[in-house]
Nucleic acid binder design. Sequence first.
RNA 1: GGAGAGUUGGCAGAGUGGUCGAAUGCGCCGGUUUCGAAAACCGGUGGCUGUAACAGGUCCGAGGGUUCGAAUCCCUCACUCUCCGCCA
Length: 425
Amino acid sequence: MLDPKSFRQDLDALVQKLKWRGHAFDVEKYHGLESRRKNLQEQTEDLQARRNRISREIGIAKSKGKEVNSLMHEVSSLGDDIKLRGSALSEVQLELQAMMNEIPNLAHESTPLGMDEASNVEIRQWGTPREADFTLMDHVDLGESLGMMDYGLASKLSGSRFVVLKGQLAGLHRSLSQFMLDTHIRDHGYCEANVPLLVNQGSLFGTGQLPKFEEDQFKTSEDPPLYLIPTAEVPLTNAVAGRIVEDSELPMRLVAHTACFRREAGSYGRDTRGMIRQHQFEKVELVHAVRPDESYEALEIMTSHAETVLQKLELPYRVIALCTGDMGFAASKTYDIEVWLPSQQLYREISSCSNTEDFQARRMKARWRNPETGKPELLHTLNGSGVAVGRALIAVMENYQNQDGSITVPEVLQPYMHGVTRLSK
RNA sequence: GGAGAGUUGGCAGAGUGGUCGAAUGCGCCGGUUUCGAAAACCGGUGGCUGUAACAGGUCCGAGGGUUCGAAUCCCUCACUCUCCGCCA
C-alpha cells in the first residue's frame, strides 16, 4: 500500500510512476471518491462533535439535578443523521481502500525503467559454465535414468506439476535445504523459524498476495478461510505485523525452510517438463525487517547471502536487476539470481531478493520506535530466496553430471550425505 | 466436540451507563539531590486521523444493536486460558 498522502501531493508524477509499473491509475475515479470522502468526513465529524458536546452537558446537568429535556430534544435528531452520513462515509472509504489495495509499490530510483524482462539489467556474473566433452542431459533424463525421479507416480497421486524423489536424490534434496539453513543460521546470523504453512487472509493481505492475486493461491477451506503459503515470506514477514518493534531488535533477520504452494494459474504450457515449475516446492526463505535508512544496504547484504549458497555449491550464476515492469507487486527493487542450467544453455531464476520498503509494513502496520523522534514509524521489510531448493537440486544435477549418468555430490553437501559422494544406479 | 473463565495503554491491573483516552503500580523520559550512582521527591509519558499550530474526530479483541450518551447493557464472531472427550 502506498502512502495515501502521496496522492494528495504530486498526482501526475505518481500516475506516471505507476504506469512504469504496469498499473493504469484511474485519476477521475480517485478524485470523485476522494472529494466525496472529504465532504462526508467533515460533515460526520462535525455532527459527532456537536453530539459529544451536548451529551456531556446532559451528564453534567443531570448530576446537578437540573432539567435536561431541552438538551435531549436538541440532540435527539442528531443520531440518525450521524448514522446515515457515517455509513455513506464508510462506503466511500471502502471503495477508496479497495482501489488503494490493488496499487503496486513504486519503484526505487535505481530500478531500471522498462515494461518487460527485455529491460532487465545484468549486474554481475560469477563462475564459468563448464565445458563438457559429452552430451549433457537435463535433470529429467538424469533423474529418471537413475530411477530416483518419478513423474508418473506423482501424476497418479496428484496430477501434473508434481514429482516424487526417491533414494539418494531425495537425500540430496534434503541435504541442500539443511546446508542452506546452516549457512544462513551459522554464517549469516539469521534466526531460524518454523512457521505455519496455512495462513489466514490477513497475512496474505499484509505481504500483498491478496486481494489481487487470489487466483494464484491454494485456498484450503471457507471456514476458516485458510490458504497454503505461496512462500515463507508470508508467515516470516507477518512476524512484525501490528507490532511496534524496539530499535534494539533491528535489524531482524529470519530464515525458514518450508514447502511452498502455487496454483500457477497463469502459466499453462510454461515449463511443463521437469521440476522447474511445480505446484509444490521447497524453499529456504530470508526475511529482513530493518530501519528505513538501512534497507538498501540490507538488500545488498541479503542478495550476497543468497549468492554465498551458490558460490559454496560452485554453481555459475548471474545477478539481474529487474526493471519496473517485471518486478513483483510489492517490490521497490528486486535482484534476481539466475543459475546456469547446461541442458538449456541459459540462466534460470533460482532466487529473487526484494526490498519492499514500507509497502508491506503499511499494509500490516509494522512499525519501529525511532529513538531519535520517540515516535513509531513504518519499518522496511525485505524478502529473498536463499535459495529455491528444487531449482538448486536441478542445477546441481545438471552441473555435476558425469558421462555415465551419475551425479557427483558437491563437496559442501558431502557431510550431509554421510559418505555418499556420487549418485549412481 | 462439551463445560467454564477471560481479552482494557510498553507491562501489570482498576473501572460495570454520563465532565473516561481511561485510576493505580511498574517501566520509560526530564528535573531536584549526589563527586557519580542508587534511593527519595517533582513533572512528563498511547495509537490513528486531522491542523501552520490549536481545535475536532476515532480507537478499551472484531463487527452489529440499545441509548441523548457505551470500556460499561444486549447479540454475533475471533482469539487466549482451565477442565473433560478425541488424537499425531
